[in-house]
Design a protein around this nucleic acid. Structure first.
Length: 433
RNA sequence: GGCCCGUUGGUCAAGCGGCUAAGAUUUCGCCCUUUCACGGCGAAGACAAGGGUUCGAUUCCCUUACGGGUCACCA
């Protein structure tokens, strides 16, 4: 594989192809990638498929596609463990020869000293000591010839020259076993970086059965990939120093800010509200044409001014799926109660609407159909009657949409529709009054 | 249950022996405003409990409580 002698940082992401991409796994991949990139190191992808019974067709593609979509490019791999059976067998037999492992019912087990203790050091949790009597003599090579995760992991991490092992802290308690293995082979022990878990609530992990644990779930729910990455980066890690206040990050900014000092020891609860807020901020920061590209599929095809609509939609969209409901009035006004004309602040009511719409219609029909002109003239009308423009514009909004709230002002959607459609809708609304 | 790990507002979190204990989000006010948003300003809300150590503990140590992880020929 590669020379294990280089001093360069080498990290890896080593998922099992068992289904969709879990957010916890994705975050681990993100940290490993960030650490490699932040240190100008190498990021390696390895597929841990030593349990054939758990293999899911297409799962490897999901892993590759997700990483690519997220911008987590790998420099080496994917290395597939099931293709390397002979390698593991060789090392297992070497241990047997040294007397550090033994055959047991077709499998090969690690021999663990009965006495003494094993101490390992973790960058996040510090030194952890475990009595050897607590460590079980685990299987290294299964009777089907495949290595166990624990064994293949050590062999591959060494052979691939991994310098920093970044993984979930569910592996914390099996780490002494790895050290014993490294020592048995006389290999250098890598730096361990165990990261805390992502929880659904105080007592449950974010798990598959909740239907909200997978990356793809959130993409289909209208979240932007960079926002998801941004959010999960912050689950268990926070920037230090001058960047401590920053919360919105692009992937490049994360690379610049990332460091293991910022990784937390305690688990983090996944909070949908916060994800929404971060997603909303990412949406607001999009250039209008970018936002328009994302928004178009949620709007549909109409003869309207999309630039006006999308500009109005952008600050009002927290997740892309918010859009549909906001634009429903474009296709058709639908039924609505006259009470919709009631607005305390604008001092409008069903019985003031007709007079307002008459005045509006006159202004709409007479001159150029541009926002500034229409607004100025309506304002003049309003002032001469000692009223606010809203007294006219709010009824216009209702006439055009049948809604109490729309994206943008009444005049904005009027321009968005254009003269013909607007006049048609205003007249239709007046018929109902 | 044994072993290991953790515990700052509802949530994410800063803090690393001396602070009126940051910030974000959420909620609620006010301002801006052609609705609603966005934006601006403000408010509410936290060191799990008890012992030590110390002139002084959110910070260090111990105990308890609570939570999590792990004890597979799964990863």
């Amino acid at each position: 594989m590669t020379n294990p002698n280089s001093n360069q940082v080498r990290t890896r992401f080593a998922p099992s192809p068992t289904g969709f991409m879990h957010l916890g796994n994705l975050r681990t991949a993100l940290y490993a990638w960030l650490f490699a990139r932040a240190n100008e190191g190498t990021f390696i992808l390895r597929i841990e498929d030593t349990d054939q019974s758990r293999y899911v067709e297409g799962a490897v593609d999901v892993i590759l596609d997700t990483l690519m979509q997220c911008g987590l490019d790998w420099d080496e791999g994917p290395i597939v463990q099931s293709e390397r059976k002979d390698e593991y067998r060789k090392y297992a037999l070497e241990l047997v020869e040294k007397g550090l492992a033994y055959h047991d019912e077709g499998a090969i087990r690690q021999r663990v000293p009965k006495e003494g203790a094993t101490t390992f050091s973790d960058s996040i949790y510090g030194d952890i000591t475990v009595q050897n009597s607590e460590i079980e003599e685990q299987v290294l090579l299964k009777s089907d010839g495949m290595p166990t995760y624990n064994f293949a992991n050590v062999i591959d991490d060494h052979l691939m020259g991994i310098t920093h092992i970044i993984r979930g802290n569910e592996y914390l308690s099996s780490t002494p076993k790895y050290n014993l293995l490294y020592e048995a082979f006389g290999w250098e022990i890598p730096t361990y970086i165990h990261v805390p878990q992502i929880m659904r609530d105080a007592t449950h992990k974010l798990s598959k059965r909740d239907g909200d644990a997978y990356f793809s779930d959130y993409v289909s729910k209208g979240y932007l990939t960079p926002a998801i990455i941004n959010y999960i980066a912050l689950l268990g890690w926070s920037p230090k120093g001058e960047l401590a206040e920053q919360e919105i990050f692009t992937l490049d900014e994360l690379v610049a800010a990332f460091g293991t000092e910022g990784i937390s020891k305690s688990p983090a609860i996944f909070d949908l509200e916060k994800l929404r807020a971060i997603n909303a901020e990412h949406i607001r920061r999009l250039p209008l044409d970018e936002f328009t590209k994302f928004a178009r599929p949620y709007i549909g095809e109409f003869d309207i001014d999309y630039a006006i609509l999308c500009a109005a939609l952008q600050p009002r969209t927290e997740v892309l799926t918010d859009i549909g409901e906001q634009v429903g009035f474009i296709e058709t006004v639908g039924m609505y109660s006259p009470n919709v004309y009631m607005n305390k602040k604008m001092k409008t009511a069903p019985d003031t609407a007709l007079e307002a719409l008459k005045a509006v219609l006159a202004v709409l029909e007479q001159g150029d159909f541009v926002k500034e002109r229409i607004f100025e003239e309506l304002k003049a009308v309003a002032e001469s009657n000692e009223r606010k423009v809203g007294w006219y514009l709010y009824p216009l909004q209702v006439a055009l949409s049948g809604k109490t709230t729309v994206p943008g002002g009444g005049l904005d959607i009027c321009i968005m529709f254009g003269k013909d459609e607007s006049v048609r809708r205003v007249k239709a609304a007046m018929e109902l009054l």
